[in-house]
Write a protein that binds this DNA or RNA. Structure first.
Lengths: 232, 232
DNA sequence: GTTCCGTTGGAACGACATTCCAGTGACCGG
DNA sequence: CCGGTCACTGGAATGTCGTTCCAACGGAAC
């Protein structure tokens, strides 16, 4: 009897759904971070084995893509409903908030936009931002460049913000964001004035503590470049 | 004698160096991609065992940080030598080229900047870009925002370009970049005109095929926003 | 010569993604 | 009702990874 012996597996009452798996994956990513999404952890949370999950989902990559898509579509559809000439701030803040809620989103988005430019996530985000570029009366020749610049800034700055918050949270409940930013500023102030004059100067004037206003200031700055061009 | 029996290990002629390890790691990353950096592969390339590497390097994370630092410092020092009021194009292209040579660099940089804002790589890049912002006579209140916007755009757009090239290369030697870009445009042209009017319009006018010029156009666009503000 | 100690590298460990497959139960033709 | 099919399950097995462990080496110090 060295051959296969198998414990009787317990069956689940209701069948597993791809949707359930994706939502469980998002929950796992939100609470345990990017490295927390494990087929073992997912199996446990869904009270099943890894094999069952693989019947609904091709692999970890597809799961990540599906989770990203799910979150992005939700974030953008909240915004799109408003006025047709919606302000760019709405789209930007929609993505900013989604990334803050799901800190794993920013790296995922940049990776998926890079590796799959024709994918659903890429086109959705490009379209959402691009419409605002169009509404700003940017000349058609600059459409792609303008949309790219805004997109990369939004993902980069929002990702930075989300990472900062996650870092603060991991430092314990007794640290708040301002204290953390102050500690970073303090390190920058100790840089050599010869090698890092600019970074020191920025640190001396203190980093802005309102992340959201700071983020929007960057959007406005890029938008200023777009509309400045318009009159040429 | 069930206890440890061990094959006599062959000793290397010259001792292992942290520098050697980092350079081997960079080589491995360049040729085999981000997933190609394995302690096993590294051991083989250095003709040693994993344990020897761990005596010089704390772990994979530190190795990645060291490799990133090595490449970024080299890329920025090439540029910094020129005129003191160096043009922002030089710094931007320096990073662009470095990221093109090392496609693993862009994700690494965004991750390290996010997770370690006081680290060496973060401050070096911030300083290098910030000096150009300073040279543009941007008001001090916008220094941080302007530098952030430029940094995120540079890393995002350069990463996108490098990923495209890597993707083209992986499709086989019979595909070139223009053919690949055309295929992406073709997919975009098939999008629904109701849902994706902007993306289709951009695809219809054709994507620019000169990546470097496109990249610099984005830099100029953001710079235009900075200098437009100056007169306020 | 003996004793260290910095250094090495092969083996072992635990965790992971993924594959494999024996089983289960709802449905279907008869 | 009943036998068989098949979509679906979940536990075990596989191979690779990062990391740790440790017996052994060789030069330096004594």
């Amino acid at each position: 009897m060295t051959s296969r012996t198998r414990k009787k597996p317990e069956r689940r009452p209701s069948p597993l759904t791809r949707e359930q798996i994706i939502e469980a994956a998002i929950g796992l990513l939100d609470t345990a971070g990017e490295s927390g999404l494990t087929f073992r952890a997912l199996s446990e949370r869904l009270a099943t084995g890894p094999g069952a999950i693989y019947w609904h989902v091709a692999g970890k990559g597809e799961l990540l893509v599906a989770a990203t898509d799910h979150v992005v579509v939700a974030a953008l559809s909240e915004v799109a409903g408003a006025e047709p000439t919606g302000r760019i701030h709405d789209v930007a803040l929609g993505l900013f908030d989604a990334i803050e809620r799901h800190p794993w989103l920013a790296p995922q988005l940049t990776a998926q936009i890079s590796h799959n430019p024709a994918g659903s996530v890429t086109t959705c985000i490009f379209e959402a931002i691009g419409r605002q570029v169009y509404a700003l009366d940017v000349p058609a020749s600059s459409w792609f460049t303008a949309t790219s610049a805004l997109m990369h800034y939004i993902l980069g700055a929002a990702g930075q913000n989300a990472a900062n918050l996650a870092l603060v949270r991991s430092l314990g409940p007794d640290t708040d964001r301002d204290a953390y930013m102050d500690s970073v500023t303090a390190i920058w102030k100790q840089l050599s004035p010869q090698e890092f004059p600019f970074a020191r100067a920025v640190a001396d004037q203190g980093l802005d503590h309102d992340d959201r206003a700071q983020f929007l200031a960057g959007i406005d700055l890029i938008a200023a470049g777009l509309t400045a061009r318009r009159t040429d």
